[in-house]
């Protein structure tokens, strides 16, 4: 229930905690889904209840994986706790086009 994979429409959703306590588990599923998917990815974070540094790293890693394939990873509907962290760390919701090209 925590990690919904809606591969259709290129959209993934992570639910529940994205913290150090579940980092390994989420990493495995998230990275596998991201890799399995060709094309741009939208990561739905609307149901993430807790988000810490480990969670942030997961998102950044996922973005890197997608970008390595020349696509982009956008974060959509971040929940309040996610938005707060992204805001604090100046992490953009959408892939910077210049970076995606690189």
């Amino acid at each position: 229930m925590d990690l919904d994979q809606k591969l259709s429409m290129g959209e993934l959703r992570v639910d529940g905690e994205m913290t150090i306590y579940r980092a390994n588990e989420v990493a495995q599923t998230l990275f596998a889904s991201v890799r399995a998917h060709a094309g741009d990815v939208k990561l739905d974070l609307s149901d993430v209840s807790e988000f810490d540094t480990a969670g942030l790293q997961l998102v950044l890693m996922a973005r890197r994986i997608v970008e390595a394939n020349g696509h982009r990873l956008d974060l959509v509907r971040p929940s309040q706790c996610v938005a707060e962290v992204l805001d604090l760390c100046n992490v953009a919701l959408t892939t910077d086009p210049t970076q995606a090209a690189a």
């Binding site: 150090i20 980092a23 390994n24 989420v26 990493a27 990275f31 540094t53 480990a54 942030l56 790293q57 997961l58 950044l60 890693m61 890197r64 994986i65 604090l88 760390c89 100046n90 992490v91």
Partner: peptide
């Protein structure tokens, strides 16, 4: 504030519990 992500390793070496 700029997040510095240069130290993020390749996916194979990524340890989800490391910072």
């Amino acid at each position: 504030l700029k997040s510095l992500t240069e130290r993020l390793p390749a996916v194979e070496e990524f340890d989800a519990e490391a910072c």
